[in-house]
Each structure stands twice: as structure tokens, then as C-alpha cells.
Design a protein around this nucleic acid. Structure first.
Ligand code: ZN
Ligand code: ZN
Length: 200
DNA sequence: AGATGCGGGAAGT
DNA sequence: ACTTCCCGCATCT
């Protein structure tokens, strides 16, 4: 049957290292493929050629956090934005918006209403690492990008970054075309669209 | 407008 | 000392 494919571990997990080690493995001949939804206490060795790893991307909404170490980039999880009423969407799923990374944008986001039932939105914080948010660490070393995660997310996945970007540009298109009326609409909530302005 | 990175600083442990 | 969090600034899309 198969030969060396018994170990299902990542390339990073086959070697023993920690993101804080003064010297990291150098002679790596193999890379892990980018993992969008990492969870748990995992370690990967990525290629420094990969755009996704260069940009320190994740499906989870991770924000940069200052660890006072310019060699190691640290990010922590912002959790997920849900409907406070937990309503079901048309496809039977529940709303799981991606928290805005920018603090100011996130405060604005939380004031919006559920696009489905108009209830208030709620930010579920991540408490997956000893009660604190899950953290991701990134460190570039030569042709390698070392990745280490600490904690297990205790909340649903947010909408992915690409989904959020797609929706943002769709909203932008919808808002930019018609002549701008800064105030209210001429006729109130009487048209065929009884509740229009609830887009995220 | 918002994503992302940097870094000073405060506060908790 | 180490971690978490807050904030302003800068760059890029
Ligand atoms: Zn709702
Ligand atoms: Zn999380």
C-alpha cells in the first residue's frame, strides 16, 4: 500500500519547534498548504512564496495585536457577530457576520440591525484560550513562514474574508449609482419593499 | 471606508 | 517579566 503517508500530521507538527525558539528548523524541504480555518494548538510551516501566508490571512477574524516583538506577528480572534434573537435565515442557517477588524468600523457594525429580523446584533467574543481570544503567531524565516496557533475557537466561524468583501462591494454598487439623498426617502415604508435599508 | 502592521503605553498576573 | 488591551499613526486597496 502506501509508504510514508501514514502520518497525517502537518509538516510543521512533524518537527519539534516553538515560535519563540531562537533558531527554527532551517532544512525544511516540504511546506504545509495554507489552512484557512486553523483551530486548536497547531503549528505549520508555510512557504514564504504563498500570497495567503504572506498576508497572514485566516478565515477567522483575526486582528493584529502588539506583542512588543518585531520578529513575531501576533493576532487575536475577534469572534463572530450574530443576531441577538438567533433567527433563522432563509436557508435555515444563522447569521454569522465577520467582525470588522478596525475598532471604529466594528463599533459602527454593532449598531446595525439583523438583516433578516431587524433585531440587534451581538458580538460573540472568542474565549478559546484560557478565557482569552485564540491567538495566531506568524514568523518569517528565510523561505519559511512559521505559523503557530493557541486555543480552540468557542464560537461559530464568521463569514470568510472573501464573502465579506464580495458583499461590501455589492452594497457599494447599490449605494453609489442613484443620486445621493443624504436624508430620508420621499415616500416612507409603503412601497413593495416594506423594509429596505437593512443591509450590512 | 476599511484592512493591516507598527509601536508606545497602561494595567493585570 | 509577560500578556492583554487600548490607542494613534501610517500604508495600501
Ligand atoms: Zn435576526
Ligand atoms: Zn475565535
Amino acid at each position: 500500500m502506501s509508504e510514508d503517508s501514514e502520518c497525517v500530521c502537518s509538516v510543521g507538527m512533524k518537527l519539534s519547534w516553538d515560535i519563540n525558539d531562537p533558531k527554527l528548523p532551517q532544512d525544511t524541504k516540504q511546506f504545509d498548504v495554507f489552512q484557512e480555518w486553523t483551530d486548536g494548538y497547531v503549528r505549520y510551516i508555510y512557504s514564504a512564496e504563498d500570497k495567503n501566508t504572506q498576508r497572514h490571512l485566516s478565515g477567522w477574524a483575526m486582528r493584529n495585536t502588539n506583542n512588543h516583538n518585531c520578529q513575531i506577528l501576533k493576532k487575536s480572534c475577534l469572534g463572530v457577530v450574530v443576531c441577538s434573537r438567533g433567527c433563522l435565515l432563509t436557508d435555515g442557517s444563522r447569521l454569522t457576520l465577520r467582525p470588522a477588524i478596525c475598532d471604529k468600523a466594528r463599533q459602527k457594525q454593532q449598531k446595525k440591525l439583523c438583516p433578516s429580523c431587524t433585531a440587534t446584533l451581538e458580538l460573540l467574543p472568542c474565549r478559546g484560550h484560557s478565557g482569552y481570544p485564540v491567538t495566531n503567531f506568524w514568523r518569517v524565516d528565510g523561505k519559511n513562514i512559521f505559523f503557530q496557533a493557541k486555543g480552540v475557537h468557542d464560537h461559530p466561524r464568521p463569514e470568510s474574508k472573501s464573502e465579506t468583501e464580495a458583499r461590501r462591494s455589492s452594497v457599494k454598487r447599490r449605494v453609489s449609482s442613484p443620486p445621493v439623498h443624504p436624508q430620508e426617502t420621499p415616500d416612507g415604508p409603503s412601497g413593495p419593499w416594506s423594509r429596505p435599508p437593512l443591509l450590512c
